[in-house]
């Protein structure tokens, strides 16, 4: 009824006859790849070197090298009369950044980047929450496609599409008219600073397009952060007496904060550096990216362009330092 022998498979199934005849070391594969595999297996450092050398070379020389060259350029200045670059160290180019017109550009860009970041965080959170907590299987796939699909098409096409949507004769104006809400749109457009002749030439328009274009970069990190919050944390909080908003305030938000911080790095820095969107949609006032573009192009003032380009780097450094101090990365 019960097998009396143990369940070791019999010798016939194995190669090499009796246990005594079988070698303790299996024969090598031979050839270059065999030797290579053995070499890599013996030394983890060698493998690491192989894996890291290309990206480190790329990062070190091409990426950081050009960044350093840029930094260097910003310490030179331009001769007002000849338009030639003077290759000796000066801080006067940075001084130029503090001229009212240039300072306006910086303040304008930082305000735009901050409002785009804040708005995308507010819009992204519920979407990310739904995807992380409730979407399963088909719905999850639909979520990823829905978030990523806009990224598949050309950025320029999307921006021009938005120009049409926001134009005076565009679909939004038509929609507001159909809903008998033209007064609302006109009221908004008559507001100082954020208003304008039409949405497509106002800061509101620029803001909407930025928001649309960078939103996926906010949704995905928040979703990833929320994905790592087990449902039991939320149940435990509720079990300990917390109403839903208290659970959000004390559990969900702090745990999502690293994701929000990561997403805001994208939305903030991408807005700081972009020069296409404000050129196509918005008032003709410059943003940092446009300033860099005109300074190094039409104006030929490479040092000032370089100094402008350093501004987002400093702002991002400061931003990350603040985020760290405020504990955005504590839950990592």
């Amino acid at each position: 009824m019960v097998a009396s022998s143990s369940s070791v498979p019999d010798g016939a199934a194995m190669s090499g006859g009796s246990p005594a005849e079988r070698p303790a070391i299996l024969p090598g594969r031979g050839g270059f790849f065999g030797a290579f595999s053995d070499r890599v297996w013996r030394s983890q450092g060698f493998l690491l070197l192989l894996l890291l050398a290309p990206p480190v070379l790329w990062l070190g020389i091409i990426y950081l090298g050009s960044l350093f060259a840029l930094l260097l350029q910003s310490f030179f200045s331009i001769d007002e009369f000849t338009g030639l670059i003077q290759y000796h160290f000066t801080l006067s180019t940075y001084g130029e950044l503090f001229r009212p017109t240039n300072l306006d550009i910086i303040v304008r860009t930082v305000l735009m980047a901050s409002s785009v970041t804040l708005a995308s965080a507010i819009l992204a959170f519920p979407v990310a929450y739904f995807a992380a907590r409730y979407a399963r299987g088909k719905w999850k796939a639909l979520f990823y496609i829905g978030v990523m699909l806009p990224l598949w098409s050309s950025y320029l096409v999307k921006v021009y599409a938005w120009k049409l949507i926001l134009a005076k004769e565009g679909i939004l104006t038509w929609l507001f008219a159909k809903l008998h809400l033209t007064w609302l749109l006109d009221g908004w457009l008559s507001l100082p600073i954020i208003g304008g002749y039409s949405l497509s030439v106002s800061y509101t328009g620029t803001f909407l397009v930025f928001l649309y274009v960078w939103l996926p970069f906010m949704i995905l990190p928040i979703q990833a952060a929320l994905e790592r919050v087990p449902g039991s944390y939320l149940e435990a909080s509720s079990d300990l007496g917390a109403q839903p908003w208290q659970t959000f305030r004390h559990i969900l938000f702090p745990l999502a904060l690293p994701g929000i911080a990561a997403g805001s790095i994208f939305t903030f820095s991408l807005t700081l550096g972009d020069y296409i969107i404000p050129q196509i949609v918005g008032s003709s006032r410059l943003f940092i990216g446009q300033a860099v573009y005109t300074q190094q192009g039409t104006a030929g003032n490479i040092p000032l362009a370089a100094a402008f380009a350093v501004v987002p780097i400093i702002i991002m450094g400061f931003y990350l330092w603040m985020a760290k101090r405020m504990g955005a990365f504590n839950a990592l």
Binding site: Y233, E235, A236
Partner: peptide
């Protein structure tokens, strides 16, 4: 409730 995975808040 004492949860199976304890559900202590990591932050």
């Amino acid at each position: 409730t004492v949860f199976q995975d304890y559900a202590l808040f990591p932050h």
